[in-house]
Design a protein around this nucleic acid. Structure first.
Length: 504
DNA sequence: TGAAATGTTGGGGCG
DNA sequence: ACGCCCCAACATTTC
């Protein structure tokens, strides 16, 4: 049956900037006309409670280039990206009412405000007579599909299903339920975009790129596109996967996949990754199962983050563990915050990490744990401050992973590090960056220091500092805090949790 | 996916 | 040969 020209669908593009394994796009491509529509909501358009979902500066940079790349792909298939600005409900409603759109498809997002908005929009569009469907395209399992006491709602157990709060049993349940799916193919051709459905706007007019160009480092480090996501994955499988269990901990090495921003923007899906991993495993029988298991579990942590955010939406900015309410946080010390954000704490591993973040929009996970521990424990600055800084500066910013990760470090989240677990960035540096290569790359003023002192320059003999041309307090700061003393202060502060009445 | 304090063990120097 | 001390190495406990 030939679809009538009036039969027009919208693929509402969100964080699914890809053609392959995209159920919303495939559904929309069944119609006679297709508008691939990206709707940009500026902060003023977004509801107040959606502020957490508004992209930060680094994410906006990625979004701009990712959408450009998607447009090129769409044009190759006879289509093209359509950009609109405003509140999503208004824009979609207008297309349906005034421009003959009779179907709208999207892939799900999971921030509490997004769920509420999408539910509302689905209801409204259906009331206008449009066909609407949403799909899972960014998770191996929907956050509500895994629970304790009967994994499916058809189970015989009478006990109400409860969400998991501990990673290991959660991930075991996921693996048992099955994470294997055959990814959907990319469409071979796309229906035409209707002639002038509405005056779309230019992507450039969204002004997603920074006004002053601080983005050179981002451009060097990343290429946002579906194609480069696959190129990253291939490189990782061939070069890093086999030594992943150890390699992933070494920030100076290319030991991890660096797929996180591509995942965050949906340029590749976890199902595609799992599928590619299984294929690689099948063709490389000597590959260590342990390496595959560890890498998969990192995808598992991402899933776990969404599971927690869905079941405990307040964890976006409030501790999962209610015990944390008893803590009387001191006023954050501005000079500590400035030193932390600027990578000028005088502690090499922390400064290297914060500068890597600023320059590339990304930080190695081992180092993320260290900078987070320093902020929350040694500096006693609430984790929400760090969470917001990461939201603005990370290209891989992901609401669920970020909030849960910070809560993990702070000790108030699910399966969290206990409050007394405080990283020592000197020891961590010596353990995971034993040659100091990571420090030398990101803190070049210390590059000439011998490895013995590179993680603790303040202890280096004057002669050593002098010949390395390091003058503490001049071209590299003295430590802004004493690691041992601030550790003691943190232990004393968090000891209040022990007398708290509420059980975990 | 911690660090530091404390405890234990065993080899070697030494009187 | 023996007891004593020191201390590295490792294990356990504590935060």
């Amino acid at each position: 049956m030939k679809p009538s020209p009036a039969d027009t669908a919208i693929w509402w593009i969100r964080r699914d900037l890809r053609l392959a394994d995209n159920p919303a796009l495939l559904a929309a491509a069944q119609h006679g006309r297709l508008i691939p529509l990206y709707i940009h909501a500026e902060a003023a358009d977004a509801a107040h409670d959606e502020a957490h979902a508004a992209p930060g500066a680094a994410s906006r940079w990625w979004l701009h280039h990712g959408l450009k790349a998607l447009d090129v792909q769409l044009r190759a298939l006879g289509s093209g990206l359509h950009v609109a600005q405003g509140k999503a409900e208004n824009v979609l409603g207008q297309y349906v009412r005034e421009h003959g759109v009779n179907a709208v498809y999207w892939n799900r997002q999971y921030a509490p405000a997004q769920i509420a908005r999408d539910t509302r929009i689905k209801h409204d569009l259906r009331a206008q007579g449009a066909q609407v469907a949403s799909f899972n395209a960014s998770l191996l399992n929907e956050p509500w599909s895994i629970s304790q006491g009967g994994k499916n709602d058809r189970g015989k157990s009478d006990a109400p299903a409860r969400p998991y709060k501990v990673f290991t049993p959660y991930w075991k349940a996921c693996l048992k339920q099955g994470i294997e799916h055959t990814p959907l193919p990319a469409p071979e051709r796309l229906p035409p975009v209707p002639i002038n459905p509405l005056a779309g706007i230019e992507l450039d007019s969204l002004q997603l790129l920074p006004r002053i160009s601080w983005d050179r480092g981002l451009t060097t480090a990343w290429t946002p596109s579906e194609y480069s996501a696959w190129s990253r994955l291939r490189t990782f499988l061939e070069q890093a996967l086999s030594s992943y269990p150890e390699g992933r901990n070494l920030p100076a090495q290319a030991g991890c996949s660096r797929l996180s921003p591509h995942l965050a923007f949906g340029e590749i899906s976890p199902r595609q990754i799992v599928h590619a991993l299984r294929q690689f495993q099948a063709t490389h029988p000597a590959l260590d199962d342990e390496a595959v298991r560890v890498f998969l579990s990192e995808l598992g942590w991402r899933e776990f983050g969404y599971h927690l955010l869905y079941h405990f939406p307040h964890t976006l900015d409030t501790a999962l563990n209610p015990r944390w309410e008893v803590l009387q946080w001191p006023q954050p010390e501005p000079q500590l915050w400035l030193a932390w954000t600027h990578g000028q704490t005088g502690i090499p591993l922390v400064d290297a990490g914060m500068r890597e973040l600023w320059h590339t929009g990304w930080m190695h996970n081992r180092v993320r744990m260290n900078v987070a521990s320093l902020l929350v424990k040694n500096m006693l600055i609430p984790w929400q401050h760090g969470e917001r800084w990461f939201a603005d500066t990370l290209v891989d910013f992901d609401l669920a992973s970020n909030a849960q990760g910070w809560q993990w470090t702070a000790g108030c989240g699910a399966d969290a590090a206990p409050y007394f677990r405080i990283f020592n960035p000197v020891l961590q540096g010596e353990k995971f960056d034993p040659d100091g290569d990571y420090i030398r790359r990101w803190v070049p003023e210390l590059a000439a220091l011998p490895t013995r002192w590179i993680h603790r320059p303040w202890e280096a003999p004057a002669q050593v500092l002098q010949s390395a041309e390091v003058t503490l307090g001049m071209n590299y700061p003295r430590p802004v805090l004493d690691l041992a003393a601030s550790r003691q202060r943190a232990l004393a502060f968090f000891a209040a949790l022990k007398q708290a009445p509420t059980a975990v």
